[in-house]
Nucleic acid binder design. Sequence first.
DNA 1: GTCCAGGTCGCGC
DNA 2: GCGCGACATGGA
Length: 316
Amino acid sequence: MRHSALRNPHFAFTMSRLTIAAPADFSLESTVVSHGWYVMPPFRWDAERGVLHRIESFEGVGAIEISIRFDSGKLVVESKRNIAPLREELRTRIRRMLQLDLQLGEFHALCGKRKSHRAVVEAKFGRLLCGSTLFEDAVKIVATTNTVWAQTVRMVTLLVEACGEPSASGGRAFPIPAQVAAFGESELRERCRMGYRAPYVRALAEGIVSGELDLAEIANGALSTEELFKSYRRLPGIGPYGSAHLLAMDGRHDRIAVDTEFRAHVRRRHLRGAEASDNEMLALYERWGRWKYMGYWSELWFDLRRKVESGGTKRK
DNA sequence: GTCCAGGTCGCGC
DNA sequence: GCGCGACATGGA
């Protein structure tokens, strides 16, 4: 069972540990619960204990289960498996997952000027939970397009179950491109219920395996935001919405991912239900400069939180 | 049965 | 460059 280590002092004693420094404006909870990724495997969020569980696979090692918690200003990463040899790679992955390198000062300064966004600063909100690879985020984004959230979760859960590397206790890591490529398009359709997205996901996986799509080059930080936007757009199944989303996961909020959610939010929040063009809606966020997407997203997210707290409908 | 959801693609103009 | 229909899936 998952918590056998807690009951068995021998295993508890052999827990392998690693710590990572976190920025002063970092909040584990706000980062984890920053958008819907935390409800999808291979993440599992224990809200009560404030522990993020995750399964990660390593070449030649297999899939291992890790937990991440925040203690005295730093992140504590633990596993029953010995993670010492994986320390550097694990650090790199966690920095990406929790956007630890993102500088939020400017965004929080902008929030501080707006009464509506004070809570954002207090919550240390502004980092988005990401997968450990761009491939994972791109696949998940494709799974969010033109469907409802419950189906997105279903597709991703089925995909991870179907071809992710299994861990000792039966959980699974997010599949690597080779695993998805080997799985194939018809399986993505039939077993993972991905529908017409199957060819996109397959092409994404195969493109990475063959080297035709070089995600490492895209993600190495050398490209300008607009160049990066164009690069993401060339990925199969990634259009303007997905590309803006991927930009945000790279800490770049210059562009807003326009979708039905954005439009509904703007109508509700700024237009008293009235219709407007996308450009008119986008113009409302111009004052956020480089932080347009997070300005919008934090607004939506905190509206949603207030709604949930006052007993409204629960989502994501 | 019909509509549509955190869109994207390929086509015709 | 811009508008438009098709595209799987499943819940409302």
